[in-house]
């Protein structure tokens, strides 16, 4: 294999890995928005918080796997508490109240991590067998990127099975289109909301852990990746998991190939993509409402 092909492949894997992390983050965001009508401004902050938990766990236990297991669970539990005891209380104030609450929560988390962990970047180490390159069919691939893609694919499959093969999934999909009607049919919608919020936050937490060895952990993490996740949700269509998957991968690839071919334009390529799509389809690629 010549060097140029190898470079394309490597960039492709990088893009795919980032795209899948974006998907983990955006799928929770889009489900929460689709179902509860809440644009959760704190979603990326939960993602960052989980990365910090991961760092802390690694300090205490020295084990990446334990961090991967527990940091997202704690983050998800935190998300459930926020839904149950904060968001539900401001429901009667409407969407503006929820927007202000989650934006404020994002600020509190941002300042909180600065107070606890400081402002400098914290490293997260992966086990040696996840480092370096692996040779498959004559080409070399970065192992950790493949690991990210693999773990995201597993979560994608589990999420799809739950959404499309279980009663809970059916209820969630129905609630995305009309939560009040689901409520009037005798289904305890507040509990479903809390569950979806918890699972969405947990997935953001997984995304935060798996990306932390690549980007390191720092207070700007939420803004950097969170902006991309918002774009994914807008372009893919609010409430659409399929849209989030497709646009996440496109964004990931745009990012990595963009750096390679138009390095000066790379940071704005994703915005150009958003403007083009939303001009043609204001509700996003797979969205049903604007």
């Amino acid at each position: 294999m010549d060097a140029t092909t190898a470079m394309y492949v490597a960039q492709g894997i990088h893009g795919l890995a980032y795209g899948m992390v974006l998907f983990l983050l955006a799928s929770g965001l889009t489900l929460i928005f689709g179902m509860m009508g809440i644009l959760n401004m704190a979603h990326a902050s939960f993602f960052m918080l989980s990365a910090y938990f991961c760092y802390q766990f690694q300090i205490w236990t020295g084990n990446f796997w334990l961090a991967l297991l527990f940091a997202p669970v704690i983050t998800g539990f935190f998300g459930i508490l926020v839904e149950r005891f904060l968001l539900r209380k401001v429901q009667r104030l409407g969407h503006i109240g929820q927007l202000i609450l989650t934006a404020g929560l994002g600020l509190i988390i941002l300042e909180g991590v600065k107070v606890i962990w400081g402002t400098e970047s914290k490293p997260v180490l992966v086990p040696t067998y996840l480092q370096g390159l692996v040779n498959l069919a004559g080409m070399e691939y970065p192992v950790y990127r493949l690991f990210i893609i693999g773990i995201s694919l597993i979560l994608l499959i589990i999420l799809s099975l739950i959404l499309y093969k279980t009663r809970l999934g059916m209820v969630v999909r129905a609630a995305v289109s009309d939560a009040d009607m689901v409520n009037a049919l005798g289904i305890n919608v507040p509990v479903v909301f809390m569950t979806v919020f918890g699972v969405g936050t947990w997935m953001a937490g997984v995304a935060g852990v798996v990306i932390s060895p690549i980007l390191t952990v720092f207070p700007g993490l939420a803004d950097q990746v969170g902006m991309d996740a918002f774009i994914v949700v807008c372009v893919g269509g609010f409430g659409s998991i399929g849209g989030a998957l497709l646009v996440s991968i496109i964004c990931g690839l745009l990012n990595s190939y963009g750096v390679q071919f138009f390095s000066q334009l790379a940071p704005i390529l994703i915005f150009i993509f958003m403007v083009v799509v939303l001009t043609i389809r204001p509700m996003g690629l797979f969205g049903e409402r604007e």
């Binding site: 059916m170 999909r173 129905a174 995305v176 289109s177 009309d178 009040d180 009607m181 409520n183 009037a184 049919l185 005798g186 289904i187 305890n188 919608v189 507040p190 049903e288």
Partner: peptide, 24 residues
């Protein structure tokens, strides 16, 4: 009471807009 409890008590509601789930 919230709608789901009213429904569980035994009242069924068919709204004016029908509100079937279009995606299901």
């Amino acid at each position: 009471h919230p709608p789901y409890r009213v429904a569980k008590a035994g009242i069924g509601f068919v709204p004016e807009e029908r509100r079937i789930f279009p995606n299901l």
